[in-house]
Each structure stands twice: as structure tokens, then as C-alpha cells.
């Protein structure tokens, strides 16, 4: 987690060429367990899933080859289209997901009063499974829940956090953000440990104010971490919000919190259409492929590969 900041190290792919035959053999041997696991449990199922998406099998395995009919269905499915729009909205909030933990980590690093305590408890929600987080926030955010009670006490009208189409997705995003920001703080903290104190100190002596130091010195030096957190967060929000959606909104009201992963679950189980679910899965994977490409580039650069 620490290491991606070491982009300044001289790349070691210098002087070209490969190692000795023995070195090469050892390399493949050492990679074998990792490659075998990834291929068997992830890559092969993915290819298998692609073939499944070209059929209309039911849960009993009966079905026919239907070509790209499931993809055509997706193109005409208003629910799927809405889920894509929701995904775009979700991705648009990405800067918050990165900036908030970064700001908190910098403040702790700069010695905010109580920083040690914050660092310890911020990680806490990340430890909890989405089952408990969902149970808590369904009590907090419901129309007669504790948040509206508190707002009522200071004279603010009740807001329908989860029940109205305009608020539900935002509320869901806020809860997911709350439950994961601690991980980001931890990653940024480790990154900040690599920013030499004397650079910050020098800037201070030069008369740079708090915010100037923050934006002109600290943030630029965190760039690799920012990229890393951005990519990891993107994967997280696209693939791990099912638990919260299920408990808090069930994808509604209407389709306002239906994300592709929730739709996959719905089609797969309740609606009993594994072929169509596989097609949506493939579309989701290809969408993420664009991000994957970006990610591989960023991560490769940071490891000097």
C-alpha cells in the first residue's frame, strides 16, 4: 500500500534482456499457483459466462442457443437503461470518494487535535459487514427515523431520504461512502508517511499558508495514491453495493437505486433468467474493461513494470 509512491526509483527494466534460463524457469514456477487460481476460478468462468449469455437456459439447464438476443433485450430494457444512468451518476461522485479520505488523512497527518483517535475509529465501519450497516441505516434514514427526528428538533422538515426517487441514490451513495472511507484514510496515511517532512517544512518557512502547502506541496506528492484509490474505489462501487441496496431500498423507488449488479441478482434469482443475467454481466464487465485498461496502465507505471 505504501509502495506506489516510490515512482521516483530508477526503473529496473534497464539493460534489457531476460535473466538466465534458470531465472526464467523459477519465475514461471513461482507464478504458477497464482496464474492457475486466477485462470481456473476467474478467467474460465468469465468465458463460460459469455457462452451462457448466448442462450436462454432456465435454472434447470434446459435452453437453446439464442445468439445475441439477450443483448438485444438489454438494449430495449428500460430497467437496464436506468441502471446505466444510475451508474453514471454514481461514477460522477467519484471525486468525493477520493477527496474526502485524502483531506481527512492530511488533517490527521498535520496533527489535528485527537488525530490518533480518529485514525483508529474511522476504520471501524470498514470492519462491519453490509448486513449490520444496512440494518442501522434503515432505522436512521427511514421517514420516521432518527435523522429526521434530529432535524425536526432543530426545526427542519422531514426529508424522505430513501423513499423518493430524487434522494434515494444520493442517500445510498452516502452510506456506502461512510462505510468505506476509513480504508481510504488508511491508504492515504501510509502514502503521507513517504512525503518528506522537510519539504513541507521548507514550504512553511517560505511563507506558504496552510492551504497553499496542502494544494501545492502535499497533494501533488500524493498523485500515485490518488490514482490508486480512484481505481480501487471505482471497482468497489460498481461491484460491492448489492448488500446495501438490498437492505435499504430494494432498487427503488422505481428504478432509482437499481444498479447493474442488483439487476443481475434480480434476473438471476427471482426472475429466473440466467442467460439474460449473464448478458448484463458481460456488458458490466466490458464497461469495467475500459476502467481496467486505465488501471493496468496506472498500476504498471507505479510498479515500474
Amino acid at each position: 500500500m505504501t509502495v506506489k509512491t516510490h515512482k521516483t526509483k530508477p526503473p529496473r527494466k534497464r539493460r534489457g534482456g531476460f535473466g538466465s534460463k534458470q531465472e526464467q524457469r523459477f519465475a514461471y514456477l513461482m507464478l504458477l499457483p497464482a496464474l492457475a487460481l486466477v485462470l481456473i476460478f476467474r478467467v474460465i468462468p468469465l468465458i463460460w459466462g459469455f457462452f451462457l449469455s448466448l442462450t436462454n437456459v432456465d435454472t434447470l439447464g434446459n435452453g437453446d442457443w439464442v445468439g445475441f438476443a439477450n443483448y438485444a433485450r438489454a438494449a430495449n430494457d428500460p430497467t437496464f437503461q436506468d441502471s446505466l444512468i444510475n451508474t453514471v451518476i454514481l461514477l460522477a461522485t467519484l471525486p468525493i470518494w477520493v477527496m474526502l479520505p485524502m483531506l481527512l488523512a492530511i488533517l490527521i497527518h498535520q496533527g489535528v487535535p485527537g488525530g490518533k483517535f480518529y485514525r483508529a475509529v474511522y476504520f471501524f465501519p470498514a470492519v462491519l459487514s453490509s448486513v449490520i450497516i444496512g440494518a442501522i441505516f434503515s432505522v436512521v434514514l427511514r421517514y420516521d427515523g432518527s435523522l429526521n427526528n434530529m432535524l425536526g428538533a432543530v426545526g427542519i422538515d422531514a426529508i424522505d431520504w430513501l423513499g423518493s426517487s430524487s434522494n434515494a441514490l444520493g442517500s445510498l451513495i452516502a452510506v456506502q461512502l461512510w462505510s468505506t472511507f476509513g480504508m481510504g484514510v488508511l491508504i492515504f496515511m501510509s502514502g503521507l508517511a513517504t512525503v518528506p517532512d522537510d519539504i513541507i517544512e521548507a514550504a512553511r518557512i517560505d511563507g506558504a499558508g496552510f492551504w497553499q502547502r496542502l494544494f501545492l506541496v502535499i497533494v501533488p506528492s500524493l498523485r500515485p495514491i490518488i490514482e490508486f484509490v480512484a481505481v480501487v474505489t471505482t471497482i468497489g462501487v460498481l461491484t460491492s453495493m448489492f448488500g446495501l441496496i438490498y437492505v435499504l431500498t430494494g432498487g427503488g423507488p422505481g428504478t432509482s437505486t437499481t444498479l447493474p449488479e442488483f439487476l443481475i441478482w434480480l434476473e438471476q434469482g427471482k426472475l429466473n433468467r440466467p442467460g439474460y443475467a449473464a448478458a448484463i454481466s458481460m456488458i458490466l464487465f466490458v464497461m469495467m474493461g475500459g476502467i481496467a485498461w486505465m488501471q493496468v496502465r496506472i498500476m504498471s507505471r507505479n510498479t515500474n513494470l
Partner: peptide, 23 residues
């Protein structure tokens, strides 16, 4: 090889649910 391993980071469980189970 590094690319393949990283790219598999992008395959969420939901996407491979049925084939994974069959594997």
C-alpha cells in the same frame, strides 16, 4: 502475466456467479 492478473480484478463475483459455481 501482470496484466492478466490485474484485469481479473475487474471480474466481479456477480458476473461469474453461475459459471463459477459450475467450475
Amino acid at each position: 502475466i501482470f496484466g492478466v492478473i490485474l484485469a481479473s480484478l475487474m471480474i466481479p463475483v456477480q458476473v461469474v456467479l453461475v459459471p463459477f459455481y459450475q467450475t
